[in-house]
Design a protein around this nucleic acid. Structure first.
Length: 283
DNA sequence: AGAGATACCTGGGAGC
DNA sequence: TGCTCCCAGGTATCTC
C-alpha cells in the first residue's frame, strides 16, 4: 500500500527509465479504475519528450514537453514496472505505456483504487490543478510546528484523523500515523486542538524522521508494495506498533490495543499513549 | 461548517 | 476442501 515513501521510491526509479523518452502508444486493457481512463484518447501524449518525473503527495506526475501531464495514483495496491513488451501481462495490469526505446511501462492495480489522469499544466513544474487543494509536503519547512498548531487550533477531531487529512499535510497514511503517535506517546484519540505546540513540534520531527527513514529503506512492505524492479521495501522490519495488536509494548510490556477511527485501524499502547485531556468536561 | 460515514474494489485469511 | 464473511485503506462524496 503505497504511502509517501513508497511513491517517492517508485517515482525515483521511474526517472532514469522515462526521462527524455517518448510514449509511442498507450494501451488500455481495463478502462475502469477508480475513475474512467481517458489517456488513450489523447494524441498529445504521444511522441512528445518526457521532461520531468516528480512526486506530489502520493501522486507521480509525468510531465511532457508540451505541458501535458499524466498523473498516476497507486491507491492501495497500485504498482508500475518497466519491462520488455514480450513479457506476459499480469492479471491486473490495466494500462501499458509503450516507449520509443522499445520498453513498456505497465500499471498494475488488483483492487483498482488507483487512477491515471491526463491534465494540462500551467507551466513547466507546476502542480496540476486537480491537486491544488492539497496541504504542504511533510518533508518541507512549510510543515512546521507553527503551521500545524495553527491548522489544528480549531480541530476537535482526534489527532490520528487530523494528521491523515491531506488538506492539513499530505502523505501521512495510516501506517506512519500510527508509528509517529506511538513514538511520541500521543494517544490517537487526543483532540487535535488540545496538543501543545511543543508536543506538536516533537510529533512533526518524528513524522519527518520516520518518513525519511522509510524512504532510505525503499518504502514499507505490509502486503502489496513492490518497487519498479519488483523489489520489496524493508521498512516493515522496523514497525513498532502497526499491526501488532495483542503483542506487548516494547517499552512497558502492556498489550497493544486496536480501535477504529474514521474507518481506519489504530494501534496503540494504552499505557504509553494514555489519553491526556487538557480540559475535562463535566457530565 | 465540521465531522463522521460510506462507496469504491479484490485478495487473503479466519471460521465453519 | 470449499464456502462465506470480514478486513485492509486513500480519496471523493454524502449525510448529519
Amino acid at each position: 500500500m503505497p504511502e509517501l515513501p513508497e511513491v517517492e521510491t517508485i517515482t525515483n526509479a521511474l526517472k532514469p527509465a522515462l526521462l527524455g523518452k517518448q510514449f509511442t502508444n498507450i494501451k488500455i486493457f481495463f478502462p475502469r479504475l477508480r475513475y474512467d481512463l481517458t489517456v488513450h484518447e489523447s494524441p498529445e501524449l504521444l511522441n512528445i519528450n518526457i521532461t520531468s518525473i516528480r512526486r506530489r503527495a502520493r501522486y507521480t506526475i509525468i510531465e511532457l514537453e508540451n505541458l501535458h501531464a499524466i498523473i498516476l495514483h497507486y491507491g492501495m495496491t497500485g504498482a508500475v514496472r518497466i519491462c520488455d513488451p514480450s513479457e506476459t501481462r499480469l492479471k491486473h495490469e490495466h494500462v501499458a505505456f509503450f516507449l520509443n526505446n522499445g520498453q513498456v511501462l505497465r500499471f498494475e492495480d488488483p483492487r483498482r483504487f488507483g487512477f491515471i489522469q491526463q491534465t494540462k499544466l500551467q507551466h513547466a513544474g507546476a502542480d496540476p490543478e486537480s491537486l491544488n487543494h492539497l496541504g504542504p509536503e511533510p518533508l518541507t519547512t512549510a510543515f512546521s510546528a507553527d503551521y500545524l498548531f495553527d491548522k489544528l487550533s480549531k480541530k476537535k477531531s482526534p489527532i490520528k484523523t487530523a494528521i491523515m487529512d491531506n488538506v492539513i499535510v499530505v502523505g501521512v497514511g495510516n501506517i506512519y500515523a500510527n508509528e509517529a503517535l506511538f513514538t511520541t506517546k500521543i494517544s490517537p484519540f487526543t483532540p487535535a486542538n488540545e496538543i501543545s505546540k511543543k508536543k506538536l513540534s516533537e510529533f512533526i520531527t518524528v513524522i519527518k524522521e520516520t518518513l525519511q527513514k522509510a524512504i532510505a529503506a525503499g518504502g514499507t512492505t505490509i502486503a502489496d508494495f513492490k518497487g519498479v524492479d519488483g523489489s520489496e521495501g524493508k521498512f516493515n522490519q522496523e514497525l513498532q506498533v502497526y499491526g501488532k495488536v495483542g503483542q506487548p509494548c516494547p517499552i512497558c510490556a502492556t498489550i497493544f490495543l486496536k480501535a477504529k477511527q474514521a474507518g481506519r485501524s489504530s494501534f496503540y499502547c494504552p499505557k504509553c499513549q494514555l489519553l491526556k485531556r487538557k480540559k475535562v468536561t463535566p457530565k
